[in-house]
Simulated scan of single mutants.
Amino acid sequence: MSFFPGKDPEFGDAESCNAVTQLIIPRTSDIGGFEVRRALPTIKRRLVGPFIFFDRMGPARFGGHGEALDVKPHPHIGLSTVTYLTSGEIGHRDTLGNHTVIRPGDVNLMTAGRGIVHSERTPDDLRLRPHALSGVQTWLALPERDEEIDPSFGHTEKNALPTISETGVSGRLVLGHFCGMKADVKTHTDTLLADIALRPGARLSFPAEHEERAIYILEGQLGVAGDVFDAEQLLVLAPNDPITIEGAGEHGCRLMLFGGEALEKPRHIWWNFVSSSKERIEQAKEDWRQGRFGLVPGDEKEFVPLPER
C-alpha cells in the first residue's frame, strides 16, 4: 500500500514525561474515501528498530455497490511488508503465485528481498455489500546481509499466535518476542509487534527487552507516567527504560506495541524500495520501467506506474 501519497508526519508538543522521547502526529491522506495515517518515516525519526514504515489504515466503511480497496500490482525490494487487520478483509496476490485473504487477527508477512510484486484488493464477495476495513501496515527493513535474498510470503492465522490475557488486559503477539512469549512468524531481525487492549485503569509492564520501542494508539486514551495521550499518536520510548502503561479515560485504549534491534547502517527509501545502496534503488526503478519484476498471476492487467518524482 506504499504508493499512497502520504505526507510527512508532524511532531507534537514537548512531552512532560521522560519515558516518551518523541511524540509523532501522523499526517492523514484520503484515498477515495479511505483514510491512511502515516507515522513513519519522518525527517526527525526514520526508524524504530527495523520498522521503517508505519501506516494506520482506516478505520473506514465501504457502502457496497462496488466500493472497495484496489491497490494495483506494485513492486518492493529490500524489506518485509507486514499487514495486520482489526476489521475487514484484504485479498493478497503476488508474483510467487500466492493468493490469500487476510482477516482480523491474522498476519501477512511478505519478504521482498531482491524483488517481488503484489496487489491488495477487497475480495469479490465483499464488494457488493457494506463492510469495514481497519488495521496497520508496516515495513521491516532487512539487514544488509539479507537485502537480496529470494522473495517469500507467509500467512499466519490468528489462532496460531500467542495471546495475552490478564485482568483488564488482552491482546495478541503478532511478531517477535514479548514477556516470555514468541510468535512463530519468521523475521530477519530481533523485533516486536503486539496488539494490546487495556480497560480503564488496567496496567501492563512494557519491559526494555528491545533496543528501540514505540507505541501507536489505535483507539482511546493511554496513560504513561502520569500523562495521557490520545488516539492516532505514535510515542517513541526512551531506551533501556522499563515502563508501565495504563488504560485511561472512559474506555481505555487499544495499542500496537512495536520495536526491535536498530539497523547496522542507514537505509534509503524511495517509493516502494528500501536499500542500503542508492544505486540499488536506481536499478529497481529501471527494472520496474522495463517490466523486469514479473507479473502477478490472476492480476496481470493493471499496475502502478513508477512515480515521476
Results as ranks from 00 to 15, higher is better:
residue 94 D to W: 03
residue 290 Q to K: 14
residue 7 K to Q: 14
residue 249 G to I: 04
residue 69 L to A: 14
residue 55 D to V: 13
residue 5 P to Y: 07
residue 15 E to D: 10
residue 5 P to N: 11
residue 45 R to C: 14
residue 298 G to I: 13
residue 148 E to Y: 06
residue 114 R to Q: 14
residue 22 Q to R: 15
residue 235 L to Y: 03
residue 295 L to V: 15
residue 79 L to Q: 08
residue 171 G to I: 02
residue 61 R to I: 10
residue 241 D to I: 02
residue 75 P to R: 05
residue 249 G to Y: 04
residue 300 E to P: 08
residue 249 G to F: 03
residue 61 R to E: 12
residue 226 G to K: 08
residue 116 I to D: 04
residue 128 L to S: 13
residue 154 G to N: 13
residue 280 R to L: 04
residue 236 V to K: 00
residue 279 E to Y: 06
residue 104 P to H: 11
residue 299 D to A: 15
residue 302 E to G: 06
residue 249 G to S: 10
residue 226 G to L: 08
residue 1 M to A: 15
residue 92 H to L: 06
residue 164 I to D: 02
residue 55 D to T: 12
residue 186 K to S: 12
residue 295 L to S: 15
residue 98 N to S: 15
residue 287 D to R: 15
residue 187 T to P: 03
residue 176 G to F: 03
residue 11 F to G: 04
residue 268 H to G: 08
residue 257 L to M: 09
residue 59 P to A: 11
residue 191 T to N: 10
residue 309 R to H: 11
residue 182 K to F: 09
residue 159 N to M: 08
residue 24 I to Q: 01
residue 294 G to N: 08
residue 166 E to R: 14
residue 185 V to Y: 00
residue 33 G to H: 08
residue 20 V to W: 00
residue 81 T to M: 07
residue 232 E to Q: 14
residue 154 G to H: 10
residue 21 T to M: 11
residue 2 S to R: 14
residue 308 E to F: 06
residue 274 V to E: 00
residue 226 G to Y: 07
residue 240 N to S: 10
residue 116 I to A: 04
residue 145 R to P: 00
residue 86 T to L: 11
residue 210 H to L: 06
residue 195 D to N: 12
residue 222 L to N: 08
residue 300 E to D: 15
residue 266 P to A: 13
residue 293 F to Q: 08
residue 156 T to W: 05
residue 246 E to R: 10
residue 22 Q to V: 10
residue 282 E to S: 13
residue 121 R to C: 12
residue 136 V to M: 11
residue 85 L to N: 01
residue 180 G to V: 13
residue 24 I to D: 02
residue 282 E to Y: 03
residue 82 V to P: 01
residue 164 I to V: 15
residue 185 V to M: 04
residue 237 L to K: 01
residue 120 E to D: 15
residue 285 K to P: 00
residue 19 A to V: 04
residue 247 G to D: 02
residue 5 P to L: 12
residue 246 E to A: 12
residue 61 R to T: 14
residue 171 G to F: 00
residue 119 S to C: 13
residue 66 G to F: 04
residue 11 F to V: 11
residue 166 E to H: 14
residue 302 E to C: 07
residue 74 H to I: 10
residue 134 S to Q: 11
residue 110 M to H: 06
residue 26 P to S: 08
residue 194 A to S: 14
residue 98 N to A: 09
residue 268 H to S: 12
residue 27 R to K: 12
residue 72 K to L: 09
residue 152 S to K: 09
residue 108 N to E: 13
residue 77 I to P: 01
residue 262 A to L: 09
residue 95 T to A: 15
residue 67 E to Y: 02
residue 111 T to L: 07
residue 198 L to F: 12
residue 66 G to N: 01
residue 253 C to G: 00
residue 181 M to E: 13
residue 215 I to A: 04
residue 187 T to E: 07
residue 283 Q to E: 13
residue 296 V to N: 01
residue 219 E to M: 09
residue 235 L to S: 05
residue 214 A to D: 03
residue 5 P to A: 12
residue 260 G to L: 05
residue 54 F to I: 07
residue 203 R to Q: 15
residue 183 A to G: 01
residue 39 A to Y: 01
residue 252 G to S: 00
residue 306 L to V: 13
residue 57 M to W: 10
residue 284 A to E: 00
residue 187 T to G: 03
residue 115 G to C: 02
residue 168 G to R: 00
residue 136 V to S: 03
residue 17 C to I: 11
residue 273 F to S: 00
residue 152 S to P: 05
residue 299 D to M: 08
residue 168 G to F: 02
residue 265 K to G: 14
residue 306 L to W: 08
residue 135 G to L: 00
residue 43 I to C: 02
residue 266 P to T: 13
residue 251 H to F: 06
